[in-house]
C-alpha cells in the first residue's frame, strides 16, 4: 500500500509516516501544494492524507484536481479547520473521511485502514487477521472454531485494535474512539478494562492466543505476528 502524506508541518508529517509505516505501508511525504500536485501526477497512491491549509494553496484545490483527473486515490482530510462548512465542502468534493487536528495517531491509523478497506473490497468488507475473519458490514467475527459472538462495542474495539495492530494505544484514545469526544466527563476510564477483559476472554475461549497485551499505566497493544 502506498500513502501520500500532504502536510506542511514536517514534524507532524514524519510522525504520521513513522506510525503508519509499521505495516506494509509505504509513506511518501509532500510539504506544499506544488509538491503534492507533482507527486499525485507521477504516482498512484492508495490513500492520500491531505491537510487543507497549505503554504501555497488549499488542500481542497488538490482534491478538486484529483477528481477532475479522475484519479481513484482515496483521500482522508486532516485539518484544524473544524468549521462545519469545510467538512461539508471537503466531503462533497469527494473526500472519503475527515479528521480534525489534533488527533491521535491511532485514530488516524484506524481511519486510514477503514478508507482502504472500503476501497479495496468495494462493499465486501472482510478483514482477515491471523485466524480471525471479520465481516465489517455484518459485524460478525469468525474464529478458528467458528462464529464468535461479540457485542457492538467489543466488535468496534476489535476493529480499532486491528487497525492499529502491534502498536500501543492509550486508554483515552480507545474511550474517545468508542464513545466520542465527550467522555472526558468521566473521572476514570476503568470501565474500558471490563470491555477489554470480556473481549479477550471471548477470543481465548474460541482458541485464539492472548492478543491483547496490557502496557501498564499507558494502554493496550494488540500483538499479532
Amino acid at each position: 500500500m502506498k500513502l501520500l502524506i500532504v502536510e506542511d508541518e514536517r514534524e507532524l508529517s514524519s510522525s504520521i509516516c513513522e506510525y503508519l509505516q509499521v505495516e506494509n505501508f509505504y509513506c511518501d511525504a509532500a510539504y506544499d501544494y506544488v509538491q503534492a500536485l507533482e507527486k499525485i501526477a507521477t504516482n498512484k497512491y492508495d490513500c492520500i492524507v491531505l491537510d487543507i491549509m497549505l503554504p501555497s494553496g488549499s488542500g481542497l484545490d488538490i482534491l478538486k484536481t484529483l477528481k477532475l483527473n479522475r484519479k481513484e486515490d482515496s483521500v482522508l482530510i486532516i485539518s484544524a479547520k473544524n468549521s462545519l462548512e469545510d467538512k461539508v465542502s471537503g466531503l462533497n468534493l469527494g473526500a472519503d473521511d475527515y479528521l480534525t487536528k489534533p488527533f491521535n495517531l491511532a485514530e488516524l491509523g484506524a481511519r486510514v485502514q477503514a478508507v482502504l478497506r472500503r476501497r479495496s473490497f468495494e462493499g465486501n468488507n472482510q478483514v482477515i487477521v491471523g485466524p480471525l475473519k471479520l465481516d465489517i458490514q455484518n459485524n460478525s467475527l469468525m474464529g478458528p472454531n467458528g462464529l464468535i459472538e461479540l457485542t457492538r462495542k467489543q466488535f468496534d474495539l476489535l476493529v480499532f485494535f486491528i487497525g492499529n495492530k502491534n502498536r500501543v494505544i492509550t486508554k483515552e484514545t480507545i474511550v474517545e474512539h468508542l464513545w466520542g469526544d465527550n467522555c472526558d466527563m468521566f473521572d476514570n476510564y476503568d470501565f474500558i478494562y471490563t470491555h477489554i477483559k470480556n473481549l479477550r476472554k471471548k477470543l481465548m475461549a474460541e482458541g485464539c492466543p492472548n492478543y491483547i497485551k496490557v502496557i501498564y499505566g499507558v494502554g493496550y497493544k494488540f500483538e499479532l505476528n
Binding site: 514534524e11 510522525s15 484544524a80 489534533p102 495517531l105 502496557i215 499505566g217 499507558v218
Partner: peptide, 27 residues
C-alpha cells in the same frame, strides 16, 4: 495552535511505542 498540539500528541503517540520505557517514564 492546533498544529503544534497535533505534533506534541503525535510525538507522544510514537513515544509510547518504545518497548524499553521504564515505569517512571511512562508515568
Amino acid at each position: 495552535l492546533q498544529t503544534p498540539l497535533a505534533i506534541i500528541g503525535s510525538k507522544l503517540d510514537l513515544l509510547i511505542q518504545d518497548e524499553n520505557l521504564s515505569e517512571k517514564q511512562e508515568e
